[in-house]
Design a protein around this nucleic acid. Structure first.
Lengths: 137, 137
DNA sequence: CCGAATCCCGCCCGATACTG
DNA sequence: CAGTATCGGGCGGGATTCGG
């Protein structure tokens, strides 16, 4: 979904990066890309509780595959939201913990969760009514 | 409006942290799904400035297709974040405006944008350094 | 235990054409 | 102007297998 990435690819439409962004959207896409995927938020929420090892994360987030757990933690690590510590023991042991930036991000996520909790019923009702009048989307 | 200042024990509110979300909705998934897609945020940001007609939205958000503009506004309408008014004139004229809930949502988005703006450089640098050491993801 | 590498399917979204 | 209908490519992400 990365906008910046698609800009690299020579495309037929040759549309420049869509980020004229009114005035205030320019860094937000990268953040939204992480919020958008299914797992990042859950991982961040779990890490907000404390240091976690790979397996612990996987158990804490039921349904996530090894692949996606690796990808998600890797991206968070790359972006400096998560710190990754390898203990060269046998068997190997890898710990993940939020950085300062990561904790800041976790707060934003918490606010998001709060807003969702407050409005979810209202949204659900609106959606139900809408689909009763007009059909499925 | 520093986000950092609101840092005091995030989950003081109601309920345990964000716990019960475990894997499935406490409502947040639905919100994140909207935030995740490429267009919703841009539309909401534009509508936060005032009432807009279909074409106006399309011009304000360069790169969006008619199809995606329809889908995005339709979903926002369905979920009660946007109000849709049809004037049966010729040519037809349709106005979109945020509802109270929609404006509330727009505030959340604004906070998100603010956080992004504050941290985007830092994230970008972290990513650059990371990709210098290790390769592309 | 912690990953990397592959295969593969679903759906999101862009492009295009048509309608009232 | 404000949509609808349809086709097709890309990629997110699940399942599985192999390596250290």
């Amino acid at each position: 979904m990365s906008v910046a990435h698609t800009a690299v690819t020579p495309q037929v439409g040759a549309q420049p990066p869509i980020g004229p962004c009114g005035e205030d959207d320019c860094g937000i896409r990268g953040v939204l890309d992480r919020l958008g995927d299914r797992w990042t938020v859950l991982i961040v929420v779990e890490l907000a509780k404390g240091v976690r090892r790979f397996r612990e994360l996987q158990r804490a987030v039921p349904g996530i595959s090894q692949r996606m757990l690796t990808l998600t933690t890797r991206r968070l690590w790359r972006d400096g939201l998560v710190e990754r510590t390898v203990h060269p023991t046998i068997p190997p042991q890898v710990e993940y913990r939020l950085t300062a930036t990561g904790r800041s991000f976790a707060e934003v996520v918490a606010h998001l969760a709060e807003w969702s909790a407050v409005h979810k019923d209202e949204i659900a009702r609106s959606r139900e009514r809408w689909e009763a009048d007009h059909g499925q989307l």
